[in-house]
Amino acid sequence: MVTTQDKLQVKIGNLELKNPVILASGTCGFGSEIKDFADTGKLGGIVTKTITLTKREGNPPPRVFETTGGLLNSIGLDNDGFKNFVFEKVSGLEKLRTTVIASIAGNTVGEFVKLVTGLSGIPVVGAIELNLSCPNVIHKGTRFNLLSQDEKAVKKIISKLRGITQKTLIAKLSPNVTDIKKIARAAETAGIDAISLINTYPGLAADIHTMKPRLGGVTGGLSGPAIKPLALKCVWDVYRSVGVPIIGAGGIMTWEDAVEFMICGAAVVQVGTANFVNPKAPFEITEGIKKYMKAKKIKSVKDIVGTLKA
């Protein structure tokens, strides 16, 4: 007999998720706040706030601004660094009773290596998501604004990391490239286990009275329902170009949005901005997917993935 649990189970790399709904990086901290609102044990997993080797103060305020159907942010990877993660955050993550995916970002390959080496020894970390696409930080050693705009950098970083860890590796890509398929293929060739897309779109908003940008960091990353169709296209394009599973994200507010992403090729979905509006959104989305499957007599969530009739 197939239980509900089995129906919803998905696998990325060597990581089993109890359901395909996970919380996107930067939208749930390290899980402790979400715990006040719902049972995190019911989540497919959470992706932590991006961890960098050393503490980053983050960008000057204002850091968030609402635009039509979207949220523009310039947080700037504000985090307390890797050591703090190990000593202060890991014990809290263990209590969440869900799969934990650690999001990391490095300025150099060397920093990525140090982070992955360190995380490989931490049992609660089920997978590592490489944030190659934060629009609010500047990287050394590449002439591109984002690491994931540089095909060679993507290949180099992933190949190196593949050689040093058994943990499932996920690459989070930016949509702000000429051809996202090329970048995804480069990641796959280098040995990535799954591709997470998309990160926010670079954006800008200005105050017409003060002539000042709305964000302290001037430009920011746009998320929310406004970017959903753009994200769906990226997922569909990449789905047809690579064999590894896709983790889809970009403006998922409801279970219908989540199913739409799966139809376009996402094996797993990340809920991000919706968490800010409704901390229970990911739980409601999981319930919605269950009901949809029951109504449509779908046996496994995997059967929805990539069913777009196009």
Binding site: I34, G58, P60, P61, P62, V64, I75, D78
Partner: peptide, 22 residues
């Protein structure tokens, strides 16, 4: 006051500069 998204401490959006950091 600051522009705020989540209100519960997860988005880190409503930062204010203090003598001991944001």
């Amino acid at each position: 006051e600051e522009y705020m998204a989540c209100g519960i401490g997860t988005c880190l959006g409503c930062a204010v500069k203090t003598k001991t950091g944001y």
